[in-house]
Amino acid sequence: MTLNHYLVLSAILLGIGLLGVLTRRNIIVVLFSIEILFNAANLNFIAFWRFGPNPEALMGPMFALFAIAVAAAEVAVGLALVIAVYRHFKTVDLEKLDTLREP
């Protein structure tokens, strides 16, 4: 296991996440994809810290912790919005949210 293994895995996760955000229409699945994106970055932080020049500094894991907490906050707000949207629109399909657009 070298640094490159982790970087490749994280790049794959980034690709999966981006693909999900760009192509899926279900809001909940899009939120999943965003979580995958954040975790791709977190994996990078931990890998760079572990294989980096000074593992004593702990900067990588520290940032990963912040990223986890922030991602949770975003998802909490996102799920609350999904509930509100479902109550009004009766759908979680992004394509059906189209009241705002170019006239």
Binding site: L65, I68, A69, A72, A73, V75, L79, A80, I83
Partner: peptide, 19 residues
Amino acid sequence: YLYALAFVIFDVEVVFIYP
């Protein structure tokens, strides 16, 4: 859902308390 959301938020704060 409100319970679930509150749980998500308070649960994740453990990542700061644990280290």
